[in-house]
């Protein structure tokens, strides 16, 4: 748990790679969710993921466009991006490690869709080449 540690949000958290407990790549820290405690100090509660989180940070027309694509892919109107609770974070290094497996966190549906509809239909998709 990273509780209590002081972080430079820009330098240590934003845009960093998130990996799961098996070392698989999960997503990027596209944005973070902040809350303010009783004393008025902000703390990070979740990692926000996907185009809907990235869009506002890109800004401008491009940003709105990216957010819209994100909503379309998610097949709904919700502007809320998928989130990973910060309590799941076990390490903050050159990557952010979470305690769950990649399959157990919901970080958007594109990978699942691509896998189900395209990649797993091609022979050999289930064999590692290493």
């Amino acid at each position: 748990m990273a509780e209590g540690r002081t972080l430079d949000l820009h330098l240590h958290l934003l845009d960093r790679q998130v990996i799961d407990r098996d070392g698989r790549y999960v997503c990027k820290v596209d944005d973070v969710e902040l809350e303010v405690d009783e004393t008025g100090r902000p703390f990070v509660t979740a990692i926000l993921v996907g185009p809907r989180a990235l869009g506002p940070r890109l800004g401008g027309r491009l940003g709105r466009w990216v957010s819209a694509i994100g909503r379309r892919i998610a097949d709904g109107q919700s502007p809320e991006p998928p989130r990973i609770d910060f309590a799941l974070v076990s390490d903050i290094g050159s990557a952010i490690t979470i305690v769950r497996s990649r399959a157990d966190v919901d970080v958007g549906s594109l990978e699942g869709w691509v896998d189900a509809h395209i990649i797993s239909r091609i022979p050999g998709s289930g064999h590692a080449s290493k």
Binding site: Y25, K28, L110, I118, I119, G126, S129, K130
Partner: peptide, 21 residues
């Protein structure tokens, strides 16, 4: 690497679907 997708030939293609696509 920009979007944080799984990439590489060290995993099965179906574990790095977006990369292979």
């Amino acid at each position: 690497q920009y979007f944080g997708w799984q990439w590489g030939k060290f995993v099965r293609p179906r574990d790095a679907g977006r990369f292979h696509l």
